Structures are given as structure tokens and as C-alpha cells.
Amino acid sequence: MANKDNMINLDSDFGIDSRYKTKREREQDSIALMHARLERLKNLPKQQILRAKLMQLKLKMEDFLHSTINDNQAHFTQFLEFYVDTLYSKRSDFTRDLNITAVSLSQVINKHREPKEEFLFKLLFHSEMVFKDVCKFDNRIWLEVYFRDKINQKLSLQSEWKEKWDKQVRFSELPV
């Protein structure tokens, strides 16, 4: 700020601190920064990337449970798919570890079938072992996400079922 050449420009498009004299300078610096980040990512150990992805999954699941999202999306299957694809290069390896069929996993992920209770409990135990060395992970989160999805699904379809049940339920008086 001492002289005119070093003045800080406030540019809302590119953040608070923009000291570039031209748009081209700013773009070149942005490209150089991106290349440096990509190069650093290439050199990260696979174990560190895996830990980061698992942490990301945990945080996304917790965020979903603490949010007020009431949509009809299947968040459980999205999280499950991310979990399996993060840990295994082939889904068949996951099914072998859980002692389930590849068809049943595929049907759950593609929303053709609800997961059986047995599958859910196996997933709880599996994630407990996976997250043991990564971070504190309450394996109940899988059940909470699954049932939150079920609740959201029923609530999102309320217009379909409310009329039917509204005609059958009456309120005559309060019991004293």
C-alpha cells in the first residue's frame, strides 16, 4: 500500500486479495496454482487419499443427518456406492468380504431392492473395521441414513397417501 504499483484490488470475482495488473496474469497464476495442486495430489500416498475419502464420506453422512433435507433421493445408496468404490477396485471383492451376492449389492445400489437387515448389519461391522484406524466413526450412522431416507421418501409422497388416509380417519372428541 506504500506505492501505487503494490495497491490491493478488491475484486469480487477472484477473491478479496487480487494483486494482478491484468486478467491474463491472474489466469496464468490460477493455472500454475492448479498444476501445482494436481502435481502434489499425484504424489500423495494411496493410503492418505483413502483416509481423506473416508473422512469425506463420514462428514457427508453426518451433514445429511443434521440437515433439513426432505427429498426423495436415495442418499443411503449414494453413500454406499461411494464407500464400496472407494475401498475396492472391483465390487465383487466387497461382496466376497461381506459374503453377499453381487446381484444383491447391485440391486441395492441401483434402488431395485431394499437392503436386507443382514446386509445392513454386515455393513455396520465392515465399516467399523475400516474406520477403526481412520477416525471415530459411529457405525450406527448407516442405519440412521437408511431410515432417514425412508422417512424422507414417505414424506415426499405425502400428497399421494394423505388424501386416502384423510378420508378414513376422523376426530370426534378428546378423551377425558
Rank of each mutant, 00 (worst) to 15 (best):
C135S: 13
D97G: 07
A74P: 00
L41V: 08
K58P: 00
Q73W: 02
S67P: 13
L38Y: 12
L38Q: 08
E173D: 14
K167D: 06
M129R: 07
K46H: 07
V84M: 12
N9H: 07
Q107W: 01
F76E: 01
R148S: 01
R51L: 07
I49W: 07
S104K: 11
E128R: 12
F171E: 11
N139F: 04
Y146G: 05
L157Q: 11
S104H: 08
E173F: 10
D11Y: 07
R51T: 15
A52V: 06
T68Y: 05
K116F: 02
L65W: 06
L33T: 10
W142Q: 07
L54W: 01
D133I: 04
R51Y: 05
K122W: 03
E25W: 03
T77N: 02
P45V: 14
K162W: 00
I100Q: 06
K150Q: 08
F94W: 08
M1S: 15
V84T: 10
A36T: 10
K58T: 07
N9P: 00
V130L: 05
I69Y: 05
S172I: 13
K58Y: 06
V130D: 09
Y146M: 00
H75E: 02
L80I: 06
I100E: 03
L33Y: 11
K53W: 03
V103C: 09
D93Y: 08
R37N: 07
R140W: 15
R24K: 12
Y20H: 14
M129W: 06
K90T: 07
E173W: 14
Y88L: 04
M34R: 09
S159G: 09
Q28E: 04
N43V: 11
L120A: 12
I109L: 13
Q48W: 04
E118V: 02
V84P: 03
E128P: 04
